[in-house]
């Protein structure tokens, strides 16, 4: 007799737990306001990435096309994956002395793991993280970027 009572209590307890689960999904079924999906390509206009978002590495240039990179190569040394290559030139400055300037600051996005060591270690704060995250391209070679803009020069800080 006891086992029969057990049989039915088990049955009803089981059914009630099932109903508890169905209540949760049922609740969400009738509250479409709980939908959390973001409509990605449509919300491009309003989509604002976080200020610190690590999308890619950029070299900020000011309105006079000046950047802060001295070409010291510390970022190149610090990068664990070898995704930064710096080609430097020696150019005579106003006083006639040869000075090192960057020719190309090459950044291989395909190799970058966004560890942030280059940005952190840069002594002249020439590098920063950009918010751009749509990096998909059809050709892998397009992921190799030159960070300094053509014709840009190093910013001479007033010392």
């Amino acid at each position: 007799m006891n086992s029969i009572a057990q049989y039915f209590t088990d049955l009803f307890k089981g059914l009630s737990t099932l109903w508890a689960g169905m209540r949760v999904t049922g609740k969400y079924f009738f509250s479409p306001g709980a939908i959390v999906t973001q409509q990605y390509p449509e919300n491009r206009k309003t989509l604002k990435m976080e200020e610190r978002f690590k999308g890619e590495i950029i070299m900020p240039h000011d309105e006079n096309n000046l950047h802060a990179c001295t070409g010291c190569g510390i970022c190149e040394i610090n990068c664990p994956n070898g995704s930064i290559e710096i080609l430097t030139d020696r150019v005579a400055n106003a006083e006639g002395k040869l000075e090192r300037v960057i020719d190309k600051h090459i950044y291989h996005l395909s190799m970058c793991t966004f560890c942030g060591l280059c940005v952190k270690t840069c002594p002249s704060d020439a590098l920063a993280f950009g918010q751009e995250f749509e990096h998909a391209v059809f050709d892998r070679s397009k992921l190799t970027k030159v960070l300094n803009q053509p014709g840009s020069k190093i910013r001479k800080e007033a010392k």
Binding site: T25, Y28, F29, A34, T37
Partner: peptide, 13 residues
């Protein structure tokens, strides 16, 4: 659609 709404998604759209 039904499963999407139950799962807080939009489903095919």
């Amino acid at each position: 659609k039904v499963c999407a709404i139950m799962q807080n998604r939009v489903g095919p759209n």
